[in-house]
Design a protein around this nucleic acid. Structure first.
Lengths: 326, 326
DNA sequence: TTGAAAGCGCTAACAC
DNA sequence: GTGTTAGCGCTTTCAA
């Protein structure tokens, strides 16, 4: 346990409030006193107790980041970006992995409020709005609109879905498949699927949509789905997946099944995470501007905390990155 | 701002200490009182202020995790594991990316102490021990021995290096290269390089070692190094890299240079992170038991906080995962 | 069984 | 310029 203000005051022979004043540079302080206090501070190795400060100020300078799992590259990169911005503005970030579990997400939300975080960035969406804690700290969501107030950050999911689908079509694919996470989650990412269906329908292209039945990122699940797809729809020659992680699994299964990529089957992912260019063939994908999304999410939260006006809808553009898999 | 104990007490018509007692189940409380308090709590939507509790208890139930970057798959998976364990034991984790910057690492260390974290897990090692903050909270390091006291978790780096090197030799490689991060950092991972050099020397195999000159995970750097290696040592037919991330870059560069893997050149990585089996050919690697390492690190810290005895050296076994790249 | 009082470490009126 | 006092929201002696 470190020294306290009181001990400094005692040593210097002044009142605690005086020491507090020199620490915070409030009002006039005599040069002599300041020196003596400074000396005592170094001698006693004093460091202000931020918990006590937080209690008084009613401000913790901590924000909570709730995501499914930081081990998923999209969220890892997002977390990285958010932490970077938070650090610059003197905020700490508490990392909360929901693992796609309702209970954990819910209890983390409560816990964050109890811990007096100044704000929350929510990127995990297993709860419906009614379950949301009342009297909550400032909130910004990622990829979900929860109500007409709460600001959210997303990228242009519909355009992304359209770009991906159109690319496959323009490359000559005759039958398309979409492999996605569970659609029942209220996420804007579902717009990618909407676009896929709209576009294929408009172009009159046969298509099939498959989604995981569990909530989470279990590779086994993707592998099974892909195998079933190849079995039931052997004529599919273009696959759009809603993440690069899924895409890489799908790619591997296809290769194992003896399909050549992109000759026999073309695959396009989504996200633009780092390892997309490491796999072989390199993955064509729709890039979400992850660092910008993280920065924007923090910026919005920061403004919310400071009671500055923010826009509710914050949709960033996506871009097509063509690589070897198409 | 939520209701406070005082408001509950006021509403129920008792003293705050009484309400506190029912909250914490201390001593005897009449059934009637308990009911009235419970009702007031729900009506006012009361939630204890954990900051105030922390101040009193001198315990925040928060730990700090300092790593280079959570966007690196090894640290992402480690962070995931640590958060999981922490959550079970009612601890929160503050995520601190040092970005391999001395200043940031140092200031995070100070900041964590000021924020009264109960403990720190340190996996970033740009500081030398002398720069360590004094009077620090309980500390557990990952992959580094800082002094004769502080417990650390690592996996068996020397064995890992040996396994990797011997595999390449047993596969018939005639000239080996090691591509590693910067060796000047005081990390136990350097033992992998020691093993590489010992074994190649023992077997009388020509070898060359290359390390990045910057601190960090800049892909450009790895690519340059690999290109230089291929240019200056075109006869190298086996490469050991100290991470899967590096390995995947190296693999790509080699493929771009027209080398077939594993026929012309064999590559083995390190870590056993998820995407190793997604790239093609799938990456042979030395697996570190990342979830177990994270769990152990937290367990040690937990014991340290509770002043229970802990062992200082905690080295977990590694295992060879043979896949397509060798 | 409940209340009063003190105190965790700090800051901010308000005096002097 | 510096001290006194009160209080942030909570818990815990100690009395009653």
């Amino acid at each position: 346990m470190g020294a306290t203000l009181k001990e400094i005051a005692l040593k210097v022979g002044v009142n605690v409030s005086t020491v507090s004043r020199v620490l915070n540079n409030r009002g006039y302080i005599s040069k002599d006193l300041r020196d003596r206090v400074d000396r005592a501070i170094t001698e006693l190795d004093y460091h202000p107790n931020e918990i006590a400060r937080s209690l008084f100020r009613k401000k913790s300078n901590v924000i909570g980041l709730v995501i499914p799992t930081v081990a998923h590259p999209f969220f890892g990169e997002l977390c990285e970006s958010i932490e970077k911005c938070a650090y610059q503005k003197n905020y700490r970030v508490l990392i909360c992995n929901s693992q796609h579990e309702r209970d954990k997400e819910n209890s983390y939300l409560k816990l964050l409020r109890a811990n007096q975080v100044d704000g929350i960035i929510l990127g995990s969406h297993t709860l419906d709005v009614s379950a949301f804690i009342t009297d909550r700290p400032p909130l910004v969501t990622i990829d979900r609109r929860v109500d007409s107030e709460t600001p959210f950050v997303s990228s242009d999911n519909y355009s992304g879905g359209r770009l991906a689908t159109e690319l496959l079509i323009s490359k000559g694919c005759k039958k398309l498949a979409l492999i996605m996470g569970n659609r029942s989650l209220p996420m804007l990412a579902n717009l990618r699927a909407d676009a896929f269906e709209d576009i294929t329908t408009a172009y009159n292209i046969p298509h099939v949509t498959m989604q995981t039945h569990i909530m989470g990122f279990d590779p086994i699940d993707y592998d099974e789905i892909t195998n079933r797809l190849l079995r039931e729809h052997p004529d599919v020659d273009g696959i759009f997946t809603t993440s690069d992680l899924i895409a890489s699994h799908v790619m591997r299964i296809c290769q194992n099944a003896g399909k050549r990529i992109p000759e026999d089957i073309k695959i396009i992912g989504y996200d633009g995470v780092f390892f997309g260019e490491l796999i072989s063939p390199q993955l064509t994908t729709i890039r979400q501007p992850i660092p910008e999304m993280g920065a924007l999410a923090f910026e919005l939260l920061f403004r919310l905390i400071d009671k500055l006006p923010v826009s509710q809808e914050n949709t960033l553009p996506v871009s097509l990155i063509e690589r070897g898999s198409t």
